[in-house]
Amino acid sequence: MSGPRDSYAGGVRKVARVVLLDPRDRVLLLHGHEPDDPSNDWWFTPGGGVEGNETRADAALRELVEETGITKVELGPVLWRRRCSFPFAGRRWDQDEWYYLARTTQTATRATALTELERASVAGARWWECEELARTHETVYPTRLAGLLRTLLDEGPPARPVTLDTEIV
Rank of each mutant, 00 (worst) to 15 (best):
M1W: 15
M1E: 13
G3M: 07
R5F: 06
D6V: 12
Y8L: 15
A9Q: 14
A9I: 15
G10H: 04
V15G: 06
A16C: 01
R17V: 14
V18F: 12
V18I: 13
V19I: 08
L20T: 00
D22E: 09
P23Q: 02
R24K: 14
R26N: 12
L29M: 03
L30M: 12
H31L: 08
H31Q: 11
G32Y: 06
G32M: 06
G32N: 04
H33T: 04
P35T: 03
D36G: 05
D36Y: 06
S39N: 06
D41N: 15
D41K: 10
F44R: 14
T45G: 02
P46A: 09
G48H: 08
E51Y: 08
N53R: 14
E54V: 02
D58L: 11
A59R: 04
L61H: 03
R62C: 10
V65H: 13
V65P: 08
E67F: 01
E67R: 06
T68E: 03
G69T: 01
I70N: 05
I70T: 01
K72S: 14
K72M: 09
E74I: 14
L75T: 02
L75S: 03
L75V: 03
G76Y: 01
P77H: 04
V78Y: 06
V78W: 10
L79F: 05
W80L: 10
R82W: 11
R82T: 11
R83V: 14
R83F: 12
C84A: 15
C84D: 09
P87K: 14
F88H: 15
A89T: 03
G90H: 11
G90T: 07
R91C: 08
R91P: 00
D94N: 13
Q95Y: 11
D96V: 02
E97P: 09
W98P: 00
W98S: 10
Y99M: 06
L101W: 07
A102G: 12
A102P: 11
T104V: 11
T105C: 07
A108K: 13
A108G: 05
R110A: 13
A111S: 11
T112L: 12
T112D: 08
A113K: 10
A113T: 05
L114K: 04
T115W: 06
E116Q: 14
L117G: 05
L117I: 13
E118Q: 09
R119E: 09
A120G: 01
A120R: 15
G124R: 02
A125Y: 06
A125I: 10
R126W: 06
W127M: 09
W127T: 04
W128E: 01
C130P: 03
E131F: 04
E132P: 04
E132W: 12
L133H: 00
E138R: 09
V140M: 06
T143S: 12
T143H: 13
R144F: 05
R144L: 04
L145Q: 01
L145C: 00
A146T: 10
G147Q: 07
T151L: 05
L152T: 09
D154I: 00
E155Y: 01
G156P: 07
G156F: 03
P158C: 01
A159D: 13
A159K: 13
P161L: 07
L164H: 05
L164W: 08
D165I: 02
E167Y: 13
E167A: 13
